[in-house]
Design a protein around this nucleic acid. Sequence first.
DNA 1: TGACTTAGTGTCCGTTTGACACCATTCTTC
DNA 2: GAAGAATGGTGTCAAACGGACACTAAGTCA
Lengths: 229, 229
Amino acid sequence: MTFSYKYERPALAVDCVVFGLDDDDLKVLLIRRDIEPFQGRWALPGGFVRMDETVDEAAKRELVEETGVGRVFLEQLYTFSALDRDPRERVVSVAYFALVNLSDHRVKAATDAREAAWFATSDLPALAFDHEIIVDKALERLRGKVRYQPVGFELLPPKFTLRMLQRLYEKVLEKALDKRNFRKKVLAMGLLEELDEVEQDVAHRAARLYRFDKKRYRELEKQGFDFEL
Amino acid sequence: MTFSYKYERPALAVDCVVFGLDDDDLKVLLIRRDIEPFQGRWALPGGFVRMDETVDEAAKRELVEETGVGRVFLEQLYTFSALDRDPRERVVSVAYFALVNLSDHRVKAATDAREAAWFATSDLPALAFDHEIIVDKALERLRGKVRYQPVGFELLPPKFTLRMLQRLYEKVLEKALDKRNFRKKVLAMGLLEELDEVEQDVAHRAARLYRFDKKRYRELEKQGFDFEL
DNA sequence: TGACTTAGTGTCCGTTTGACACCATTCTTC
DNA sequence: GAAGAATGGTGTCAAACGGACACTAAGTCA
């Protein structure tokens, strides 16, 4: 069965740039392509949009199907439409990006039928299609967002230390931050709930754990509060 | 002649939200639809993407064809894909937005074959499709941009007074600004070139004219300078 | 020439930002 | 159990910035 149209149409696809944070690095989730074109190369998870779903839904579906990563906030990034971005035929792709706590998703991704893995953004392999361009755009957006939104809590486990949070910001912004000033600022925002717990199994003094106060965030957001860091 | 595909595909379109500044108001450029659906209603300029052009090119082309507005910096805004956004069939639309100096474009738009006109954003007519949602998204983006980029010079004539610039910011941000603080800040950015001219034909003391120093802007931008206002 | 309208200018104060160094705690190793 | 290694946790000061605030100057019009 085929579908016929009076005018030629490009195919419509989605691609997802999913960032995770590792002890060492900001990472991106990639899958290895098992079909041509670019068979064997690493690529962003994604696929074609179906007629009974929005583009947002397609992105979410493809991400789960190909990597097992679900329950993620996907934000639309940009639509890529260069004429030759797919060698087979004209494909326009709507890119999405998401932040996840890598430790939640490390195993799932690796055990899925398709080969999926995390790669440090600073050391990516050659990617299929125009996916390098898409990743660059996503990084740019992440850097922009991080400056005026308390983004990045998604990248950490539910309970985290201030040092972990600082390292995250340093990775994303690619610059060192002063410990005292960072703590002062981030605590002053009032979005962190101090827990009566400390991290475990570290070979030095254990740091206090904090939790992101989502409820308070939503309250302040509603009041047009500014979260510039 | 028809085109057949193995899988069903949505049609792909573009829509343009073009903002202009009037003495009184922030305005949007609309065209009146001359065919069904929504015949007779006002809508954003736009149309279907061709196979030999990128989405960016399609937006630019449609804008010129339907309104005569050209030489404009169009920035991609968002891709809209609700299943029922077009009553005829599934259409996914990539929206763009642009800022233009309204006085340059007032006449052209009005004399084009299709009926085109500027409407105050605060007083829009009922729009076709989901175009109200698109305009809202564009306004949100404009407000976001204006805070950290010296956006908006595009909305003014090449030579403008500081008062005009301030009014622009007040319209976009929807709040009053202090004259002295505004001037202090905007001049401190060093992006304005003071001219040896004053405005003409005003019924009071004439204000000095300034010009936006694009060259300097690009220099500072390259150095990662911050233009928060 | 007087009334009206907008242009143009500076100070002060409270807040924020960024630079900067030391002791505390816990674990490891000898 | 003492010393060492690693990281946690804390405060001050000075400079820059942001926001509140009011008057004189210049030009037009009647």
